[in-house]
């Protein structure tokens, strides 16, 4: 397991704080998910109707962990800051690009990514930390570079996250995917990845 030094912005002090990006989700991370992330999500969802709950409120990261761990083509990531879990991601490396300019070329596909409940303005305002999405996209792009995929990545965005991938990350929107519950599909080309890394 490799640990990278990354930064998140702490709302309380408005300063960048040093955090860790781990390229493997461990039992320890899942215990943190179960001990703090999950209860916080359940507390927020209690008594709310479905449309008012976060779009990923039902995600069971322990179940997801058991699904991906035995498989060679999957990569998992965790962000830890000040001894608490701040974000989780699972990506795979065996899917192909759909965008015409890079059709058929291998991409890193983000299967799932989420930030902890306390980092979401919808659940806690101001959020405890900002920047989890940025770090996770950077991790996916870097993994893509390491694999020789030149930074190409793809993902199906949850509806409320579409502006982040389209505008903040500069990814190309390819339309709603009927085969994927009508989620909007996005891809980052090698040129877009280069811009993302340099900005």
């Amino acid at each position: 397991m490799t640990e990278s030094r990354v930064f998140l912005r702490k709302s309380e002090t408005n300063e960048l704080v040093e955090s860790s990006l781990l390229d493997e989700v461990t039992d320890h991370h899942l215990a943190m998910w179960n001990g703090s992330w999950r209860p916080a999500m359940e507390a927020y969802c209690a008594g709310r109707v479905l449309r008012d709950k976060p779009e990923d409120h039902h995600w069971d990261w322990k179940w997801k962990a058991n699904e991906w761990r035995p498989l060679l083509g999957y990569h998992s990531f965790a962000i830890v800051c000040e001894n608490d879990l701040q974000g989780l991601m699972v990506a795979s490396d065996f899917k192909s690009a759909r965008l015409q300019a890079q059709f058929g070329k291998p991409i890193v596909y983000v299967e799932f990514v989420a930030t902890a409940p306390w980092n979401r303005p919808e659940l806690q305002n101001p959020p405890r930390y900002r920047g989890v999405g940025t770090v996770m996209v950077a991790a996916a792009v870097e993994l893509s570079w390491d694999l020789g995929y030149r930074g190409r990545i793809g993902l199906h965005s949850l509806p409320k996250a579409e502006p982040f991938y389209r505008e903040s990350c500069g990814m190309t929107e390819l339309g709603k995917d009927a085969a994927h519950q009508n989620l909007m599909y996005y891809e980052m080309t090698d040129n877009q990845a280069e811009r993302f890394r340099q900005k």
Partner: peptide, 8 residues
């Protein structure tokens, strides 16, 4: 928001 993956 930054979530990507399976919808609820």
């Amino acid at each position: 928001e930054i979530g990507a993956g399976t919808p609820p």
